[in-house]
């Protein structure tokens, strides 16, 4: 590899990084300007103003929104992981008739857009009194998360050496013991990756909560942010501070777990 080529590659990567960061930098920059500033992103001043964040937090009721969204994510993650482990193991460990068809039937769910099911969900959930509660989002997301979870974990389990489970099987261990004592301990990284995906998807989710939760006190961060942005569309710094407030935890989370996330997506690609 020539030095020239390497320099080209590096320059190019730096350009890609700048292109990716630009929109985020633009809102961060506006969010730190005084409320009456006319700047809309390009010019930068060191006269930073954090008051917008304080104002946005209270005016947008973001504390409430964070609690709501966190409640939804923290309910979904353990339940979804638990059911996906069972399901993924079921498809990995057992042979049964029409297994292939049932598995493909699950895969079908990965292509169904939420827009296609939200209207019947609205009526179904209303009839059982779950509309306007966090459960209205939790249940459909749990259902929607199953296909990927099962697909993901089954692929991972299948990549493990066969001998482990076989040996235990011969020793007379029950299938549950094999799952708990042999498979799970060596599958931590796959489960952590799945949990991270579930967190990101549930936290970022929009359309279900927009339609199924009309109660402003039970809104999630994304629907709350949309309402906030519409209400304060004339105060750009405030609006941007609200947007940054919502994405900051995700960015922080991403930086903390970036190894898992990047590796997770890259591995997922070839399975």
């Amino acid at each position: 590899m020539t030095k020239y080529e390497s320099a080209f590659s590096k320059t190019f990567l730096i350009f890609m990084v700048a292109f990716t960061i630009l929109p985020i930098f633009a809102i961060l920059n506006i969010s730190l300007q005084p409320a009456d500033a006319l700047s809309t992103g390009l010019s930068f001043s060191w006269d930073l103003n954090f008051q917008n964040y304080v104002d946005a937090w209270s005016m947008g009721n973001f504390g409430r929104l964070f609690i709501n969204s966190l409640g939804i994510s923290l309910t979904i993650i353990p339940l979804a992981i638990f059911f996906a482990i069972l399901g993924g193991f079921g498809f990995y460990f057992f042979n049964f008739r029409n297994k292939k068809y049932l598995f493909n039937f699950f895969l079908l769910g990965m292509t169904l857009p939420y827009e296609a099911i939200v209207i019947p969900l609205y009526y179904g959930l209303n009839s059982v009194g779950l509309l306007n509660t966090s459960w209205a989002v939790i249940f459909p997301l749990l259902g929607g998360f199953m296909p990927f979870g099962i697909f993901w974990l089954r692929s991972y389990f299948s990549s493990l050496p066969n001998e482990l489970a076989e040996a235990a099987s011969i020793d007379g261990a029950t299938s549950l013991q094999i799952l708990m004592k042999i498979i799970l301990p060596i599958s931590k990284s796959a489960i952590v990756s799945l949990a991270i995906f579930y967190y990101i998807w549930s936290w970022n989710h929009f359309i279900l909560s927009m339609i199924l939760i009309q109660d402003a006190t039970r809104r999630t961060v994304t629907t709350g942010l949309t309402a906030f942005v519409n209400q304060y569309s004339q105060n750009l710094p405030l609006l941007c501070a609200g947007t940054m407030t919502v994405i900051a935890p995700t960015i922080l989370f991403f930086i903390l777990f970036q190894k898992h996330i990047v590796k997770g997506i890259l591995d997922g690609a070839v399975k």
Binding site: F82, A84, L86, G87, F89, G90, P120, L142
Partner: peptide, 21 residues
């Protein structure tokens, strides 16, 4: 036995994705 493992995920999926669809 397989059904016991698959049924929780399957019922969530059927009730909240397939049935609405």
């Amino acid at each position: 036995e397989a059904i016991l493992f698959v049924i929780p995920a399957l019922s969530l999926y059927l009730l909240f994705v397939i049935a609405p669809w």
